[in-house]
Structure formats: structure tokens, C-alpha cells
């Protein structure tokens, strides 16, 4: 299997970020787009923890702790927005919500 280096973790994190970005672009449902945003946040967390491990500094983990907290806040507010949007428009499809479009 070989030794696992920092590069392995960084490539893994990049691939995970790319999958999340692809999801935000491909999917049309706002809720699934939210899930893909979470995937991208988690990818960034993975690279932060890997850097923290391989540079022997615990401060990276403190940053990840803050990122996880802010992500939880973001999900709560985002899903509340989604519910009130659904109440108004009866849909969660991104292409049917065009109130701010030219």
C-alpha cells in the first residue's frame, strides 16, 4: 500500500471538492445543492486537518472546529429559507425561482 503522505490527503480533498462542485452545477433541487455545499466544506476541512497533522500544529484543528460550527449555522438558516421559499412558491427547483432574474 505504501506510506500515506500529505499529498494523498490533498488529492483526496481536491477530488471531494470537485465532486461537490459538480453536484452544485448538475443538480436542480436546492436541497441537494445544499448537500453538495456541505461536501465542499468537508473537503476543505479534510485538507485543514491533514495540514495540521503533517505540520504538527494543533491550530488547524481549532479552525476546523469553527468551520464545523459555522456550517451548522449555515444549514439551519439555509433550510429555514428553503422552507419559507417553498411556502411562497411551492417548489424547490432552482430554475423555477426567478424573482431576482432580469
Amino acid at each position: 500500500m505504501g506510506t500515506v503522505t500529505l499529498g494523498h490527503y490533498l488529492v483526496l480533498s481536491g477530488l471531494l471538492f470537485a465532486i461537490g462542485l459538480a453536484g452544485v452545477i448538475i443538480r436542480r433541487d436546492l436541497l441537494i445543492m445544499y448537500m453538495c455545499l456541505e461536501i465542499m466544506l468537508n473537503a476543505a476541512n479534510l485538507s485543514l486537518v491533514a495540514f495540521s497533522r503533517f505540520s504538527q500544529q494543533i491550530r488547524g484543528q481549532v479552525l476546523v472546529f469553527f468551520v464545523i460550527t459555522v456550517a451548522a449555522v449555515e444549514v439551519a438558516v439555509g433550510l429555514a429559507l428553503l422552507v419559507s421559499l417553498y411556502r411562497m412558491k411551492r417548489t424547490t427547483k432552482a430554475e423555477e425561482i426567478t424573482a431576482l432574474k432580469f
Binding site: Y9, L31, V49, F65, A76
Partner: peptide, 29 residues
């Protein structure tokens, strides 16, 4: 990676709170 505390927080916050929120919204809508 040796970040045991973050592994626990990840399971609590994401697999616990955030996922319940997502499934609840799927059910609600």
C-alpha cells in the same frame, strides 16, 4: 489523522444534527 476530538464532533454535529435537519426537511416538503 489523529484528530479524535474532531472525529467525534463530525459525528455529533453532521451525522447527528445536520442530517436530522436534512431528513426532516425532505419529509416536510
Amino acid at each position: 489523522l489523529g484528530a479524535y476530538f474532531l472525529a467525534a464532533v463530525q459525528v455529533w454535529v453532521y451525522a447527528g444534527a445536520v442530517m436530522v435537519l436534512f431528513l426532516f426537511i425532505i419529509m416536510l416538503l
